[in-house]
Design a protein around this nucleic acid. Structure first.
Lengths: 357, 357
DNA sequence: TTGTATGCGTTATCAA
DNA sequence: TTGATAACGCATACAA
């Protein structure tokens, strides 16, 4: 094991001058090193490099040259210690392996790095306790948080929002900023589609009990079904995974509905898998739909009809909103993200006329 | 906006004493606040909370109580400034939306948080320049890095490894630690399978030119094909996405092979999609295989035969290795991760006897 | 065992 | 415009 290898580092860094001063033990140059090399005071270096333009062009050039030669970079910790800003934000997710989060991560990462912020990712593994622990651990080192699909109680979220700025995704809590999809738009399009196809009786396969979004989708579904005179039954809660969807098939069949609306694509896919194994014909015997349009939804056979969420945009908006607030700008109003129905092969007209209850 | 709210905080902190000191402007309690409340010196607080046991039980209890009441937490930046350690590591990835990385992220996140480390995620978007910029930006604030599927030149990686400890995943560079799958094991199993089925002519759909892993797979494939007397042709480079696989169909058909071995599952899936659209029967007319066994590979129809990589374990091992080195422990030797062949529905005996070239 | 003093690298305040 | 200097919150060498 080679824990230290001083000769290498010095050899690579300094150009064979005396090794006594210059770089610190850490190997990284500081503003003192730059100041010495440029023949100015450390505070001048700080100014020149932090807020360019507020200094004489000549000295600034000298300082820049010296910084360049020493490969100087600001120490973020020292900076943060004084300013209280870490230039870091946290994204906390329920389940990293759920394809739903890919888009969110990518959008958030882009928006963050665009403004020079670093993104920290924490996973709650669908557990409120784990999430609380993770948040508590990273809270001191971030300037703000994006809570996506949080499993935390509303009160706890409010507590966090008091300490640091928070933006929610797919969750609403009083007085906390949130990026939300237009649920009613998506559900309306979905019900219209099913209605036109001739479906008269639906089942909703709900998600976890603590999922705010599952509840919202149910409410909208219920209202829409009522106004259209369609039958609707809730089956759940279901674990929001393929396995969870698989396990629900029996109850769906027993409910004698012609279409199943799943809380998310994972559940929908699981349901279709189980149906295929039981020789239940999707979509002719049973239509199946999901939400999110994750990777895999168009791969599965039959390809899944689903309500697409603009996940990447959600991640991006959330971070932008957070950063705007951090910068003292007034964040734009967060209008709902559009939810578009993607019609594929898992929905069709029911084989027989609607069952009369 | 209420930046300060002294009455609340002091009310909770000091017992109505003078309001001049107490909580800092930031709102967060410091060891000074705890020290004052417990009636001891700040350094004692630091000791009591940093290394429990090395202090009298009575004072420690007092200090813990005070810390609890003030909801004290160490300021990681202040700590890092002194120790040079941030308790943070970076995971840099080529493409966050590639399902391959889910496992890596999860494994890395678990291993990191298990030791109280925070994980930072950076994405290179398949670009060496973006990756270099990202690395350079986060380098000062992390204790070490895990480079997964790096698009960086070997020299650049060595440069980074001089500044901070680095562990690679799916990439080998001299003198840099790496977690690698057992490529030859996977390829051997794959070729055995194809050989038994009766395939005599294969195509390898390679990945990006800069992909070290694509090159390794090709080398093993070539060697194995030679020793088995099988024909093998390389088709590529291909963009490692579904689209990339789609685009390769024509050349695969033109090559008149009976089986296509794709660099990864995404390419394999794309190839199958294109095949389906062109009425090419997979697996009877063309067998297709992938690498990785990502989410979606068993969803697609026909379900994909592929060489599974232990991605989660790779992420975990990489972080553990890094952390062991950071802690001064000697990291365990990094033996190759096993690569298991998962036989599903995309491979079958060729419809006709092998084409004679 | 506990307290005092100092430094970590930066920014900001105040002089010059 | 530039320089000296005092925080920022914590860890540690040293003293008590």
């Amino acid at each position: 094991m080679q824990s230290d290898e001083p000769e290498d580092e010095v050899g690579a860094a300094g150009t064979s001058v005396d090794a006594s001063r210059g770089q610190r033990r850490n190997g990284a140059a500081t503003i003192y090193d730059v100041a010495e090399r440029a023949g100015v005071a450390p505070s001048t270096v700080s100014r020149a490099l932090s807020k360019p333009g507020r200094i004489s062009a000549a000295t600034e050039a000298k300082i820049r040259a010296a910084a360049e030669e020493l490969n100087f970079r600001f120490n973020p910790m020292a900076r943060a210690l004084h300013t209280g800003r870490t230039q870091t934000i946290a994204l906390v997710l329920a389940d990293i392996t759920n394809p739903v989060v890919f888009g969110i991560i990518r959008g958030a990462e882009k928006a963050a790095s665009a403004e020079g912020y670093t993104l920290i990712i924490a996973e709650s593994q669908e557990s409120g306790d784990v999430e609380a622990a993770a948040v508590s651990r990273i809270l001191p080192s971030v300037d703000g948080l994006v809570l996506a699909t949080s499993r935390l109680a509303s009160d706890r979220i409010r507590d966090i929002a008091v300490e640091k700025p928070v933006v929610l995704i797919n969750r609403a809590v009083d007085d906390v900023a949130a990026i939300l999809p237009n649920v009613s738009q998506g559900v309306t399009a979905l019900l219209d589609h099913l209605d036109e196809l001739g479906h008269r009786s639906l089942a909703y396969l709900s998600g976890p009990q603590v999922s705010w979004m599952s509840e919202r989708r149910w409410e909208n579904l219920l209202e829409g079904a009522e106004s259209r005179g369609m039958g609707l039954v809730e089956i759940g809660p279901n674990v929001p995974t393929i396995e969870g969807g698989r396990a629900a098939l029996r109850r769906v069949l027993a409910a004698r509905v012609t279409a199943a609306v799943a809380f998310n694509d994972l559940i929908a896919i699981g349901l279709m898998k189980a149906a295929a194994e039981s020789d239940v014909d999707v979509p002719n015997r049973l239509s199946v739909t999901g939400f999110d349009d994750i990777f895999g939804s168009e791969l599965v056979v039959p390809a899944l009809t689903t309500v697409r969420s603009e996940l990447e945009l959600a991640g991006q908006r959330a971070v932008e909103h957070l950063l705007a607030g951090l910068a003292g700008r007034t964040p734009e109003a967060t209008d709902a993200l559009s939810a578009e129905l993607v019609i594929r092969m898992s929905t069709a007209a029911p084989a027989e006329p609607a069952v009369v209850g």
